[in-house]
Design a protein around this nucleic acid. Sequence first.
DNA 1: ATGGTGGTCCAACCA
Length: 254
Amino acid sequence: MKIATWNVNSLRVRLPHVLEWLQAQQPDVLALQEIKMTDDQFPVEQFNECGYQAVWSGQKTYNGVAIVSKHPTQDVVTDFPGWQDDQRRILAATIDGVRIVNFYVPNGESVASDKYQYKLAWLKAAKHWLAAEFKQHDKMIVLGDFNIAPEDRDVHDPAAWQGQVLCSDAERAALTEIMALGFVDSLRLFEQEAGVFSWWDYRAAAFRRNMGMRIDLLLVSAALQARCCASYVDKQPRKLERPSDHAPVILELT
DNA sequence: ATGGTGGTCCAACCA
């Protein structure tokens, strides 16, 4: 089973890249973030033509998440119970007995901003909801754009980013609390060279200089850990004309 | 130190 996550920064613009990538890579599941479209605009027919079904939760202009899958999706959830939010950032579904939880975690803008407080509150709600989900699903993968670099080795210039949004202690602590429910960072199960990132700013030729961050993660529950056989970033789509600023990250299970 | 780019949608917000 091959599972991937990709922040596409507008599915309307990136659809050709996504369809080409699906055809080439043939993942069983692809979780998308920042589709930036309303539900009625979702190009489900074009995924169907490639042999995929999909579920999605969209909104106008911002955010929006989807799960594209070769196999049927069950028990779809789009919100934390009791958490009122117009921002579409959550999509969970069970596929082949695996609970897939797709998150587009708030960016947070800067540590002094209201958006940062929203991010921390959102992560707290996420932890509580995941704890409840865990009671019903031992085989879980929480994946998506976390907008948190877990450790300094996930940052091209840790000194410059120290204490900044995406790297601050409170964000990393919130991620640690989620991991402590019983998840491991799948990519770190495998030996990696230094400088493995999943996002590079469009500005300042950041991709060419590999000035990136690893903020797109696949967290796997203990019940799935023994099935993990590979996890890696595919930088190829980031090299295309008019790319997303994120690259897909992949997990392969036996 | 600033601004550098890109998407949405045409002024300004978000990343």
